[in-house]
């Protein structure tokens, strides 16, 4: 069922609130391939964030399936290659999906270094020495090597978000999920965060990005999803979506944001 280049397969994913009166997600089906940079756009309230947060089960879907490397992570158990039924450990799958939030969600009581080493040390049990080396290399890549011992409150918004990105990268994720990563930033700081994301994309990281940055979507994305009212209305390459939009809702949306 799952082919090797399909990292995540989402099937008929639904998320309802209030006994089905609100349909945040109304049957989303999409395959995310390895190396994809998938950008999800759409008006606010369209279910983009809910879709993204469902991928690592921060939102529990009402129905549907999410296959990660061929295993349905919405179920409580699965049958392994030896034919045995195994309880599904969602924490194991969350480690492989890095997530970046709109409001950064750095841990305020820890330094940048501690923020980044917490999960590798406590979850992966990496030795302190090795992980700190890796963390410093990552910090250097995003130009924050001298901020290792700073507390989040001492950083600007753009710096916080770059730390949040490398914090997720510390776990060597197979896919990075970005939930409006630049929406809470001052305009002059958007560029520095997008640059880090562009570099990640160039290196071949699989990414799912919910954003309002149409320039980023067009330049970096290889697939654009347009969502409205919890439905996936149109999907295509950046040129198809931005130059030749088909769905009237998409045309309407683009005329407002471009």
């Amino acid at each position: 069922m799952a082919t090797s280049d399909n990292l995540i397969q989402v099937q008929r994913l639904k998320k309802h609130y209030g006994q089905g009166s609100v349909k945040a997600l109304d049957g989303i089906t999409v395959d995310i391939r390895r190396g994809d940079v998938m950008v999800v756009i759409g008006p606010s309230g369209s279910g983009k964030s809910t879709f993204l947060r469902s991928l690592n089960l921060l939102e529990e879907p009402t129905s549907g399936a999410i296959f990660f490397n061929g295993i349905d992570i919405t179920k409580h158990s699965y049958v392994n290659s030896a034919g045995k039924t195994v309880t599904l450990d969602i924490d194991h799958y969350r480690q492989r999906m890095g997530m970046v939030f709109q409001h950064f969600n750095l841990f305020p009581h820890m330094t940048v270094l501690q923020n980044m080493t917490l999960a590798p040390r406590k979850v992966r049990h990496f030795p302190k020495r090795a992980i700190e080396q890796k963390v410093r290399a990552l910090l250097e890549r995003v130009g924050l090597q001298n901020k290792a011992n700073a507390y989040p409150i001492q950083l600007s918004g753009g710096q916080k978000q770059r730390v949040a990105i490398v914090r997720a990268l510390c776990m060597d994720p197979e896919v990075m999920l970005f939930d409006e990563p630049t929406s809470a930033l001052d305009p002059e700081m958007v560029g520095e965060v997008l640059d880090v994301m562009k570099e990640l994309a160039r290196e071949g990281m699989t990414m799912v990005v919910v954003t309002h940055e149409m320039g980023f979507a067009r330049e970096v994305g290889n697939r654009i999803l347009f969502m409205a009212d919890g439905k996936l209305l149109e999907e295509g390459s950046p040129s198809a979506i931005f130059e030749h939009p088909q769905h009237p809702r998409l045309r309407d949306f683009l005329s407002k944001v471009l």
Binding site: N56, L58, D91, H92, R94, Q95, M97, G98, M99, F101, H103, N105, L106, F107, L118, A119, K122, V123, A164, R167, A168, M171
Partner: peptide, 12 residues
């Protein structure tokens, strides 16, 4: 968001 960030990193 603190809980969400920690859980998304794989902490139980």
């Amino acid at each position: 968001g603190q809980t969400e960030a920690a859980r998304s990193l794989g902490l139980n």
